[in-house]
Design a protein around this nucleic acid. Sequence first.
RNA 1: GGUCGCAUAGCUCAGUUGGUUAGAGCGUUCGAUUCACAUUCGAAAGGUCCCAGGUUCGAAUCCUGGUGCGACCACCA
Length: 879
Amino acid sequence: MLPPAYDAKQYEDAIYKKWESAGAFKAKVNPAKKPFTIAMPPPNVTGTLHLGHAVMLALEDIMIRHRRMKGYEALWIPGTDHAAIATQNKVEKILAGEGMTREKLGRELFLSRVREFVANSKDTIRNQIRKMGSSCDWSRERYTLDEDLSEAVTEIFVKMYEDGLVYRGYRIVNWCPRCESTLANDEVEHEEIEGNFYHILYPVKGEKEGLVVATTRPETMLGDTAVAVNPKDKRYKKYIGKTILLPLTNREIPIIGDDYVDLKTGTGALKVTPAHDPNDFEIGKRHKLATIRIMDGAGRINEHGGAYKGLDRFTAREKVLEDLKTKELLIKIEPLKHNVGHCYRCSAMIEPLTSDQWFIDVNKKVAKLGGKSLKERSLEVVKDKSIQIIPDRFKKTYLNWMGELYDWCISRQIWWGHRIPVWYCVGDGACKPECKNPIVGKTAPRQCPHCGSKQLRQDEDTLDTWFSSGLWTFSTLGWPKQTEDLKYFHPTSMMETGYDILFFWVARMILMTTYAIDDIPFQKVYLHGLVRARDGKKMSKSLGNGIDPIEMIAKYGTDALRMSMVVGTTPGNDVRLYEEKIEGFRNFTNKLWNASRFVLSILEEKGIKAKTKIDPKKLSDADQWILAKLNDTIKKADKGLDKYNIGETGQLLYDFLWNDFCDWYLELSKGEKQNPAVLHFVLKNILHLLHPFMPFVTEEIWSHLPGSQGFLMLQNYPTPIKGKFDGGTIQLGIELIGKIRYLRAENKLDPAKKTPVTIYAHANLGNVEKIRPEIIRLARVSELTLVESGEKLSKAATTMVEGMEIFIPLEGIVDTAKEKIRLGKEIESIHAQIKGMKARLDNPGFVKNAPPAVVAKDRASVLENEEKLEKLKAQWAQF
RNA sequence: GGUCGCAUAGCUCAGUUGGUUAGAGCGUUCGAUUCACAUUCGAAAGGUCCCAGGUUCGAAUCCUGGUGCGACCACCA
């Protein structure tokens, strides 16, 4: 016998171990079956499981388990991501605590330190993925820095280089002075800050007056190489061609005319700093201006900053302003709200600066893509629906973003990651001019192909972490080797992830995969929302409003946590999660447990040791009713999951178990017509249906179910049972019982006492007679008088349902005044209803245009209600 | 600046291709302890489906505009 309360911790880990050691999660190439593949978005090796992961794992596991039970070869590949900058930052922080820096440690020692850290946290995250019940194939676990995955990275890099898609360029990049590395455009977070607009007077050489420029970053004036005005600007036109004597450094810079300058912004005169502003860089190119970079990688002013050399950028700003003030060149300080980029990993303010970096050209047309560019191809596969995005609206978001994509800067000046497979000749004096060209290859070259020098130096930089994760769906299946796995399982069926990494990752996968293997990475993308706190705020450590999934699992069980994150949610919309919600699903888990306990006890009592056949001739009305409901539920659940309406399907199953099965069918089963075969059958189906959602509790109950063999997770998903079942009679009973309970409660009849009830059943007499014992029991009736029709009863509580009149005598038992008021209200409401429907039927347009079925329904309803009204009115007159 | 989303019961949310009286959970109120489950059971109250137009016989649902929140994108100093 099962214990009366389900205690999740007692079972979950053990069940998971059983599954895993039996190899239940493993998938293999099986031509007899259709594959269903999900590549798990690899969590970063830095951390522990958070709710974002938990939602992802719950959804993916539901999809995978459903398909597995439906007979697909279901493969879910787990893995982890080395998360370049994130991991490096984390280890650097640890080092800082020890008074150490990566520079002091040196590259090799630092990397071994990171590896050590990763080994630890990798285990943590792996075990937490298991805790969630994830049925992923651990034998195929991958890590973005695995040898074969690194090989894939190198392979692609070289290929892209050969196709001219990877190139080295001197450009303005987003630079994080904290991480001392570049960032891709979308790794920059724009945040509005309260800054200042500084108006500075730039004297014009040989003139008394000068030009006033406005800037938010005055320190960059140290690198100014021109002042630009709009040629159409009447105010400044005359200055074009003249020279500015740049304050503080006294460099002479030209005044140029450029259409880019907006007459209305600032003062209309723009200081041009090509090395530190993307627009200025473009202007600089147009006018062949010098590019003077004034900062080093850490954001300190370099030798070009003259007296300011060595100062941090913010200190330099203060000092520059101070000096300008002294020289009376600081004309005005105007407060200005403006957007400033910040590093998405460390939140430091981004400094745009010029640098030599590696880029991927997204606009170059290549033969390999049928004469299309990476961008065009990435747009195409979504436009032509090869890849479907759920929910649909994100398709537009994707297309917009992809359409505006700039070349992707892929080199990072950090140590943790895939080192760029590029070498440079640092020859010994015998170098030729072409020795300057980078040597790109899968393996380290022995010598310079041009001069033969053996003195080579590998590029110091590593690749953007998204470069390797962009290959995830196929690199995990063995590419560049043409494995059977790759042929069978790729493209993957589903990419399920948060909408927050649509650009970072999903788009990158599409871009890389279409190029690398001329295939889409996945057929569908399902984007889930962010998990938020009850008040809609983001969960964060600093706000202290976070919920730790591991803690919740310990408290309420994995099944409860999974359900709470999935039920009542829709794709793409954020989910608010709070403890009471999880608690509610803990209760639901317990409900299932106890319903099962009850059924199992009946089966035991009846000596049922195996599955028994349902005899179609021996089905009670209640049996028919529940089987009809079950069939309906199976159909809807299967369809719901096929269409990825996961939240809705969870709700459907919740309602079926709690309302239909427990509240009605099990209660009905406590009578004489108990049918163990049907109880067994329906419970078995419920376990199957709920299994993808709540794998642990269902598997545990399954193991106790007579006749169960093997794991529930490997059983077939239910299909509707053949045969027609008519639940109509019980449905009638349910409504009658409901009304009787209502009348009793409204009139405060003692619930402990049974009450006599009279029903004039009219045409339903035969049916109601069949379920007389059920009504008596569940409505607590002492004596049920069941007749076709009769006189109105004196001072009885009354209502009507399906044309039947229900009476409960009140006289001498309770105060009948209450009933008079209640009945009066009911009459009023019916009256209003009739009025509404009549108005509609009086509308010729309605009768003419509405489907006949709708009109007929209304007509019937009016007749029925009028009859009802008349009868209730007559009864009311009794009081 | 551009794009998108949301607005339904006190709270958190569902709501299928437009069709009687708009649903759930939590919370609230009233009641129940011989029951598989108090992690329970029965009953109830609670809604101008944000506002204004429009399409339609009929709108929570479709269209337009507005208001209020929110998100994302963006190299205007």
